[in-house]
């Protein structure tokens, strides 16, 4: 009865002591670590918001429609990412490529929105890294998230290109899944940032 597992390369990868593939386990450990990265950045931002609530007129700076739109875009990209992992597991390459391409496209739109937002803040609203403590914490927090998004786009793009070569094998579905985990995590971090950095500012206490 060992023929079943012998023939499925994905099952083959699960032959570890715990039954979780090495790469996936390492990725989850990395994500646990990344929680602390963003936890530290978010607390820095929130602490200074709490200590200096009036340092900038934040509602005047923010453009919640744009940010809402980019949040929507990122959620959609996460949906497509889940579909591409699903397609990769089915070894349905054309579907996986379309979904991956869509994920990357939405990721690029998100990044574009952020670039636009940053240049708008800097040039129209005079909010820079050194204009106030709010500028410092805001740009470093959202910038770090943006760097994560950019890396994710690069990573997913690599797999999109790789899937067109004949070196792409069935086992690589795991690699796509691991890249997907990273992408989803970037998404959940944005869910938190969208709430605690943007939306909370609009509540009138």
């Amino acid at each position: 009865m060992s023929s079943h597992t012998d023939n499925d390369p994905l099952e083959e990868l699960k032959k570890t002591s715990t039954g979780v593939e090495n790469k996936k386990l390492a990725m989850w450990a990395f994500l646990a670590s990344d929680c602390m990265f963003f936890g530290t950045l978010i607390s820095t931002h929130l602490i200074y918001r709490k200590v200096y609530p009036d340092v900038e007129d934040v509602i005047d700076i923010f453009d919640i429609e744009l940010t809402g739109f980019s949040t929507f875009i990122l959620l959609m990209s996460s949906f497509l990412m889940a579909l591409s992992v699903s397609a990769a597991h089915k070894n349905n390459l054309p579907s996986m490529r379309w979904c991956l391409g869509g994920t990357i496209f939405f990721g690029l739109i998100f990044l574009g929105c952020q670039v636009y937002e940053f240049q708008h803040f800097v040039f129209d609203k005079d909010l820079t890294l050194s204009s106030s403590i709010f500028g410092s914490t805001f740009f470093v927090l959202t910038g770090t998230h943006g760097v994560h998004v950019a890396l994710g786009i690069f990573w997913l793009g690599s797999w999109l290109i790789y899937s067109f070569t004949d070196r792409y094998k069935r086992e690589n579905a795991l690699d796509v899944e691991v890249a997907g985990l990273y992408w989803h995590f970037v998404d959940v971090v944005w869910i938190i940032i969208f709430t605690v950095v943007y939306l909370v500012e609009y509540i009138e206490f």
Binding site: V20, W28, A32, D34, A82, D187
Partner: peptide, 24 residues
């Protein structure tokens, strides 16, 4: 919702959830 469904924790071994929860 994202980590439970999109990130497959629902279908994966409990170990992944535990590792992630330690950090979270």
């Amino acid at each position: 919702a994202v980590i439970w469904w999109f990130m497959h924790l629902r279908w994966d071994m409990i170990l992944c959830t535990l590792v992630f929860l330690s950090g979270l």
